[in-house]
Simulated scan of single mutants.
Amino acid sequence: MGKLKIVEDVNWEIEVVYADKDRYTRMAIWEDISKYHTGDVSLLVGGDFYCIMAREEKKGGKAFHFTPAANDMASFMMSNDLIDLGFNGPAFTWTNKKDIRSQIFSRLDRFLISSSILDSFQGLKVKHLTRLASDHCPILCSFIGEVKMVYSHWIKF
């Protein structure tokens, strides 16, 4: 776990995840993050979650089914008030790199953030970058400082 101080009164906890194939090992990761997370500090969790959360996150191979592992991750997200920001770029972050008939694509990599972050940082964006040599494509989370909406009481035509 790391800490990021953006400005004087804005602190985030940062977690990088490289989840295991084994559901119970992943559950231990979710439990550790929950245990060591300071509840009143915003949390940003990113990396390879090794979990598909929706039918749209998989192409090829066996049909998608919402698994107990996906339920574990959904519970982890709910208990820590984490949301998936979505993304720009390629839809899938992983491929098995097989021939065209056996190819499987999945979205295993993502960033999750505390919903409270969106209150101050509406400019937060996630981008899936081009896959080069790896079976995973890199993902980038970036933000444009505080974005405050300024409203005028004047109506102009």
Results as ranks from 00 to 15, higher is better:
N11Y: 15
E13F: 11
I14R: 01
E15K: 02
Y18N: 08
Y18K: 04
D20I: 00
D22W: 08
R23L: 07
R23E: 07
R26Y: 08
M27I: 13
A28Y: 07
I29H: 11
I29Y: 12
W30R: 00
E31D: 15
I33W: 01
I33L: 09
T38D: 14
V41C: 09
V45E: 15
G46Y: 08
G47I: 09
D48R: 02
D48W: 10
Y50A: 10
M53T: 12
M53A: 02
A54G: 11
K59Q: 14
G60S: 06
G61T: 09
G61E: 07
K62W: 06
F66Y: 12
T67C: 10
A69F: 06
A69P: 09
M73I: 05
S75V: 09
F76K: 04
M78E: 09
N80K: 04
N80S: 02
N80T: 03
D81E: 03
L82G: 05
D84W: 00
F87P: 02
G89M: 03
G89A: 04
P90D: 03
P90W: 01
P90G: 09
P90A: 08
F92R: 04
W94K: 09
T95V: 06
N96E: 12
K97V: 13
K97S: 13
K98M: 13
I100A: 15
I100R: 12
I100P: 15
R101E: 15
R101A: 15
S102D: 14
Q103I: 15
R107F: 06
D119W: 09
F121H: 04
G123W: 07
L124M: 05
K127N: 11
L132N: 09
L132S: 11
L132Y: 14
A133W: 13
D135Y: 09
L140V: 05
S142F: 01
F143E: 05
G145Q: 02
E146A: 11
H153T: 11
I155Y: 07
